[in-house]
């Protein structure tokens, strides 16, 4: 073998593979540091001072949340507005709200929510997406769920439904009874309200804007 070129030498390709992999990994780790800082949870002071966090602190449950078109970013973003009562209170301390969110997040895993629903669009596709379910018109004052469950507020209707889902069938596909207690239901609703305040870069698009659709199009 007179002229062994570098291209046909496996050591060259082995080194290339190592370098490419190493470079991609380092870039990913660097981006991870940046992203981690941006998605760390905010706190109560941020909310009081109007500092926008991609993932607000747990006390966001003390506030009204809406989902509005942001002209600058070209898509919808969650907007945290004035105070709003949540189970009759709007003065949850950081500890109280944090404990509720903790209970709710644990509950979302302990009940396998993600294996029927999608959370932030990830999970199973057997039941509706829960990313912005807190903002869903179905649970609002004009929606059907409050009158169906006989409750006056969104959070109470949601908590009632979660405890006795098969009593309130909304579709042939029903949610099963998962043994959710009253306390767990409250935590889960706090978890859902908190999730709706996360900045998801405009996912889902046009949420709740259009009420009817053309079938089979």
């Amino acid at each position: 073998m007179a002229n062994k070129s570098v291209w046909s030498d496996n050591r060259f390709w082995q080194r290339s593979a190592t370098w490419v992999t190493g470079f991609a990994s380092v870039l990913l780790i660097w981006l991870t540091f940046d992203t981690s800082a941006q998605i760390s949870m905010g706190d109560d002071a941020d909310l009081k001072n109007g500092v926008t966090k991609r993932v607000p602190g747990p006390t966001v449950i003390n506030y009204k949340i809406t989902y509005e078109m942001d002209a600058k970013r070209g898509h919808e973003v969650p907007v945290i507005g004035e105070k709003e009562k949540f189970f009759g209170r709007d003065d949850y301390s950081e500890e109280e709200a944090g404990a509720l969110l903790h209970l709710g997040k644990l509950g979302s895993q302990a009940k396998n929510c993600m294996d029927c629903h999608t959370l932030l669009g990830n999970g199973a596709y057997y039941a509706p997406d829960l990313t912005k379910s807190w903002l869903d018109p179905a649970w609002g004052p004009e929606g059907s769920m409050q009158s169906m469950t006989g409750k006056d507020t969104k959070e109470e209707a949601m908590a009632e439904f979660l405890q006795h889902p098969s009593q309130y069938p909304t579709h042939a596909r029903m949610m099963p009874n998962l043994g959710i207690t009253a306390a767990e239901a409250k935590g889960l609703v706090a978890f859902l309200k908190h999730m709706s305040s996360i900045d998801t870069n405009g996912f889902p698009r046009n949420f709740g804007k259009i009420q009817g659709a053309v079938h089979g199009k």
Binding site: A127, P128, D129, T131, K132, S133, D136, P137, A138, W139, T170, H171, P204, R205, N206, F207, G208, K209, I210, Q211, G212, A213, V214, H215, G216, K217
Partner: peptide
Amino acid sequence: VSRAQMGATWAAYFD
């Protein structure tokens, strides 16, 4: 149906 037209709500999903 559920996404482009109705925007991923509960009703959109079941439609």
